[in-house]
Computed example of a mutant assay.
Amino acid sequence: MKITRIALAAAVMTAGAAQAAEVTPAEVQFDEYGAVEVSLSGAEGNPENGAAIMTSRGKGNCIACHAVTALNDAPFHGEVGPTLDGVGEYRTAEELRGIVANAKMTFEGSVMPAFYKTSGFIRPGNAYTGKAAKEEDLTPILSAQEIEDVVAYLLTLKES
Rank of each mutant, 00 (worst) to 15 (best):
T139A: 13
E135I: 09
K2P: 15
T24V: 15
V80C: 01
T139K: 15
P82W: 10
K131I: 04
Q29P: 02
R91E: 06
A67R: 05
I6P: 10
V80L: 13
L8H: 01
A18P: 01
A35S: 14
L84C: 12
V36G: 07
P140T: 00
A152G: 14
E136H: 15
L155K: 09
L154N: 04
A64R: 11
L8K: 05
A35L: 06
E32S: 04
E48P: 04
F30T: 00
I53Q: 06
L155W: 08
Y153V: 00
T106N: 04
A18D: 05
T139Y: 05
F115T: 02
A18K: 11
G45P: 01
N126I: 07
M105T: 05
M112S: 13
G50E: 03
G50V: 00
Q145V: 08
A152S: 14
S110W: 06
N46D: 05
L138H: 09
L71D: 15
E22M: 15
S39I: 10
L40Y: 04
F115Y: 14
E27H: 06
R123P: 10
G16H: 09
E27N: 10
K131M: 09
A132G: 03
K158Y: 07
I53T: 03
G50Y: 05
A15W: 12
Y33G: 01
R57Q: 12
A103Q: 07
M112W: 07
H77Q: 15
Y116L: 10
R91W: 06
S119A: 15
K158R: 13
E159L: 07
